[in-house]
Nucleic acid binder design. Sequence first.
DNA 1: TTCCGATGCGTACAGTGTACGCGCCCTTGA
DNA 2: TCAAGGGCGCGTACACTGTACGCATCGGAA
Lengths: 303, 303
Amino acid sequence: MSRAPLSPLPYQRIADSLRRQVDSGALPAGARVPSTRALARTWKVATATAAHALQSLVREGVLVARPRSGTVVAGRRANATAALSRARVVAIAIAMADDEGLSALSIRGLAARLCVPVMSLYRHVRSKDEILALMADAALAELSLDEPPPRGWRAQLEHAARVEWQIFRKHPWLARVVHISRPSAMPNAMGYVNWVMRALDATSLDGVDKLRLHVLLHAFIQGMAVNLEAETQAIADTGIGEEDYMRSQAARYDAVAAAGQFLFFAKMMRDLPEEFRIDIDELFERGLTAMLDGFAVTIRRGG
Amino acid sequence: MSRAPLSPLPYQRIADSLRRQVDSGALPAGARVPSTRALARTWKVATATAAHALQSLVREGVLVARPRSGTVVAGRRANATAALSRARVVAIAIAMADDEGLSALSIRGLAARLCVPVMSLYRHVRSKDEILALMADAALAELSLDEPPPRGWRAQLEHAARVEWQIFRKHPWLARVVHISRPSAMPNAMGYVNWVMRALDATSLDGVDKLRLHVLLHAFIQGMAVNLEAETQAIADTGIGEEDYMRSQAARYDAVAAAGQFLFFAKMMRDLPEEFRIDIDELFERGLTAMLDGFAVTIRRGG
DNA sequence: TTCCGATGCGTACAGTGTACGCGCCCTTGA
DNA sequence: TCAAGGGCGCGTACACTGTACGCATCGGAA
C-alpha cells in the first residue's frame, strides 16, 4: 500500500519533469506552465492525467492554479481550500476505526459512510497512508494537557503519561499508527513533546537524556497500548472476550501444571485469586509508578 | 482475514454435524464415519468438500484416517506427519518476513518461494493467521535463556529482557504479531514466563504482582520493538533511512524554533550534539535500567 | 466560438486470502 | 479383477483491497 514504485507512473513522470524545469529556473516564478491539453498532447496521455500531474504539483506548492488563465509557477503560499472536506473524511475515518477496528477501515467503506463516490476521496486526500497520518494527528490533537502544569517533573510526567494513555484507550488503533521515529507527519505530537521537555527542564539532565526519557516513557505506554489494541481487535474479530478465552484455556494450563512442566508458572497461576482478571488501567498505573521510580533514580544519579 | 463468518461454510456445516454426532455418542470411538463420496451425495457437495470436512476433523484429532478402510472416530492421539512440511513453510515465511517485512509476506509469494502451487500450502496450514501464530511460536522458540540462571532477581530479569529484545531485533515483525493476552497459541512463550516467574520466586511478591511485573517488562520491550519495526518497515518501503529523514525534516524543526513555538522542544534540539543519532540498543539498556530500578522500589515496598 | 482548468466519477488493474471442485492415483475388500 | 474407498495436488473463482487512468462535463475567460 505504500511501496515505492520501481518505474514512476505517467503522471509522476510529467510532474517530475515540470519540477525539474522549475528547480532549474527554466520556468521562473510566475511563468505559465503548459496547459493540461498541451501536456496531454506532448506526453500522449489523457487530459486528466496531465491535470493530475499539475494538481499534485499544486498540492506540493510548486505551482499555483489561477482560475483566470492557466497554471503558474508559485512564489509563495498554497491553497487552503478543501480543508473542511479533509477534516470530514478524517473524522469519519476515526469514527470507523474506533467502532470496528483499523482492519475494517477501507476506502470503499469510508466512501460509503460519507455517501460519496469512492474516487471522490482522492480529491481531498493523497492516499490511505495519508489518511492514517491525518487520523493520528487528529487523535493526538485531542491531547489536552493541563495548563499551568502541576509542580515537579514527576507530577508532570505522570500527567502527560495518563493523558497519552487515555488517548490510546479512546483510539486503540492509534497504537499501530503512531511511530516516534517519524514525528513530522504529526505536528500535534510536537506540542506534547514540548510539554514533556518543559517538565524535565528543571532537572539537570542534558538534551540527550531528556529526549531519552521521553522516548522511553512513550515506548512503555505504546507497548501497553499495542496489547490493548490486539485485545480489542480480537474481540471484534472473533467475538470472544478475554474472559471466555481464559476459561477455554484453563484446561490447557491445568494440563501443563499436571505434567509437572513449568513449575513456577504453575505456582504463580495457583497463587492467583479465583476469577482473577487483569485490570489494564491498574496495570498501567503500576507500570507508570515503576517507570517513574526508575526515572527518579536516573535523574538523581545524573544530577 | 480472520472475520468470523456469519453463516458457516459448507465444509464447516458438515464438520459440525459430524462433531455433534461424535460428541453425542451417536458415533462411538472406532466407528467408521461416512465416506467422502457418501457425504458428498447426502450433502450435495463435491467430494473434495466432504474430504475437506473430514480432513479438518482429522486435524482437530476428532477423527483418524485409516489408510486401510475409511475414516474412524479417534480415541486418542493425533497424526504427527506433515510436521516437516509445516516447519518448512514456517521457516521460509520467517525468512521472508525478516527480509522484506511482514507486509511483503503473502500466501502467493510464500508459495512461489517454496516452489509449490499456492493452494498446496493449505494442506499444511489452516490459514494465514495460523502461519503468523506458528511463526511467532517458532521465533519465541529461539529464546535461549541461560541455565542455570544468574543469581538474584534483577540479574535474571535483565537477562530475560535482553534475550527477548534480541529476538525482536532479529525478527522485527514479531512486535506486530505477539500479544500477551492470547498466549496459548504460542506454547514456547510459556517457558519464558516460567523462567521469569522463577526469577521472581525468591521475592516476597504474590502471584498477582509477579504476573504484573512480567507483563509490564514485556510491554516496555514490545513498545520499543514496535517502533523498531516501524522504522525497519519504513526503510524497506521508502528506502529513506532515519538519517536522511531527519536531515529532510531539519528545516521544519528550524522553522518551528524560529517561530518561537515549542520553546522547550527547540531548546532540547539545540542541546543535542551535532550529528546526534539515537542508538536504539543503548536506549533499550537505559530503559531496562530505569524499569528495573523501578521494580526494585516496588519489590522493596511490597516485601 | 474556442480554449482553459477544475470537478466528479466510472472503469479497470493488480493484488490479497481462501473456498470450492475437478481429476488422478493408490489401496483394498469383495 | 474391479469398483469404491480415501488421499493428494492443483486450478479456478470470488470477494475484497488501494488506486491509476480516462471520459464527460462545466464555468469562465480570451
